[in-house]
Structures are given as C-alpha cells and as structure tokens.
C-alpha cells in the first residue's frame, strides 16, 4: 500500500478522506494521532476491494469444494472384489469402476502388487492385467504340471453397494478363455436375486402370498405367475385355505368368474321365453 499525503477533508471513524496535491481524492487510514480537518496528513491509502476479487474468491472456493467432493467420490471404494486365483488380492473400486485400492491378502500377492500398477485403471482391465501377470509369475516359479490347466480355477467374489449391480467382466472372461482357466464369479446380491427369482418360478403361489402378507410391492410377472398357479391348482386340487390367503382382487376376479358360470348354467331355466 502506498502512503498518500493530502489535505484532510473529512474524518470518518478510523479513516480520513484526503485530497492529494495531484488532485486525487483518497481514503486513508488514521494511526494513533487523529488529524484535524484542513491539516496536511500522510497515511496509508485504503483501496476498495474490487468486485472481481470477490468473484475470484467465490470461484476458487467453489473450485476447491468441487475438487474436494470429486476427489472424495473418486477415492471412496464402493465395490470390493476379492480375486482368488494363484494369489489372493483384494481390489477396491470407486463408483466409476476404477481401481482405487489394491491390498494383497497373501505373500505372493504382495510380490505381484509391487510388480504391477493397476491403480486408477478400469476394473476389467485391471483384472485382466492381474490375471496375466499372476500367470507369468506362476509359470516362472512353479514346475509346470503335466496337465496344469485342468486344476486351475479363479474365484472372483464381488461385493458392491452400487444400486445398478452391473460389473463388466467380459474382458476377464475372454482372457480366462485364452488361458483355459475356469472362472467362478460370486456376486452376493446377484445370488440373492437369483434365488428369489428361482423361488418365484418354482413356487409362485407361496412366494406371492408371502409378499402380500409382508406388504411388499408385487410386479406384474409375479402376479401373472400367481394367477397361472391358481388356475393350475384349481384344476388339480381344491385349496383348503384359499379364502384366508387369497388377495382381494384375485378373489373378486374368481368369484365373478364363478358367478358368470353359474348364471350361464342357470340361464335356460330362468329364461322368460321358456
């Protein structure tokens, strides 16, 4: 800040307005000595902070915030994959399927992790590289068996918090096929979902009724399955506790159907023409 000298025109708090010799009007800071109006006084000029500086501050603040959240989101593991082949390694990926953390779970894993760099790579690429490298290491270290390919199996277990539980492992599958290795993918959510689907297909009635009792939402497919099963059951055997367990809508549908059939059967008798 420059020192400015001028005639004191006005004093306001800790600032004085001065007119300098070269015709400029300035606002300056007052020290301990308060000058009188009309006095020639020297002080440090106060410059108003221009608007663009506020803008810069706000922009940089936003920039830091977005960068911070971005970095946080990038580095936060959402999915963890345990690769269990010749070595055991745990990979953690973020929501964009990029590997953010690699933890070896055994000694050979440690070696392997040191030798390769799969951080920040796509999961499928990373897994492929992992497979290739572990195969190379394996081939170097061990004496090849007579029929080595038959015994090899890789387990990949996936646990994810992602809603859309799609993890692309096509590349890995291709690579696995090249090496003639069995690949077993365990996906917890998938397993659960699959088992539920199976249940729905095998015992649609119980599954549906169970859901209704628990007040869970039911989709159309399940409903249709249920109807089919009812029809099938009706033909084969009369369910004993049908009244208690059948949901209202279905019940109505069936009572209507029955009524109609009864009407139809009674029709010739009630016909006024006869």
């Amino acid at each position: 800040m420059k020192n400015k000298t001028g005639i004191v025109m006005k004093i306001k708090g800790k600032h004085a307005y001065v007119m300098t010799k070269d015709g400029a009007f300035e606002k300056i800071k007052i020290g301990h000595l308060t000058p009188q109006i009309g006095e020639i006084f020297t002080g440090e000029a106060v410059q108003a902070v221009p608007i663009y500086k506020y803008a810069i501050a706000a922009a940089s603040f936003l920039f830091v915030i977005t960068l911070g959240t971005g970095a946080y989101a990038y580095n936060k593991p959402v999915t963890s994959i345990i690769y269990n082949g010749s070595t055991k390694i745990k990979l953690e990926t973020n929501r964009w399927d990029r590997i953010v953390k690699v933890t070896p779970l055994d000694k050979s894993g440690e070696k392997l992790v040191k030798s390769i760099d799969i951080k920040n790579k796509k999961l499928s690429n990373g897994l492929t590289i992992l497979l290739q490298e572990s195969e190379k290491l394996n081939n170097k270290a061990s004496v090849p068996d007579k029929n080595p390919n038959n015994n090899k199996e890789i387990k990949v277990s996936i646990e994810t918090k992602k809603k859309n539980n799609k993890i692309n492992v096509d590349k890995l599958k291709e690579e696995v096929n090249k090496h003639n290795i069995k690949l077993k993918i365990e996906n917890e959510k998938d397993n659960k979902a699959e088992s539920k689907d199976l249940e729905n297909q095998k015992k649609p009635k119980e599954y549906f009724e169970n859901k209704i009792n628990k007040k869970e939402p039911v989709n159309k497919q399940e409903h249709d399955n249920y109807i089919e099963s009812i029809d099938y059951n009706e033909k084969s055997q009369e369910p004993k506790d049908k009244k208690n367990n059948t949901p209202k809508k279905v019940k109505e549908k069936h009572t209507k159907k029955k009524k109609f059939q009864e009407d139809k059967s009674n029709f010739p008798n009630n016909n006024p023409l006869n």
Partner: peptide, 14 residues
C-alpha cells in the same frame, strides 16, 4: 491559521 482557513474552506465545500 492556515489549517483553520483550510478547515473553513472545506466546511464550505462540503
């Protein structure tokens, strides 16, 4: 004196 004169002028100017 000069300061006084100036102060008067300034008051007038204000």
């Amino acid at each position: 004196q000069e300061n006084k004169q100036r102060a008067e002028e300034i008051a007038m100017l204000i």
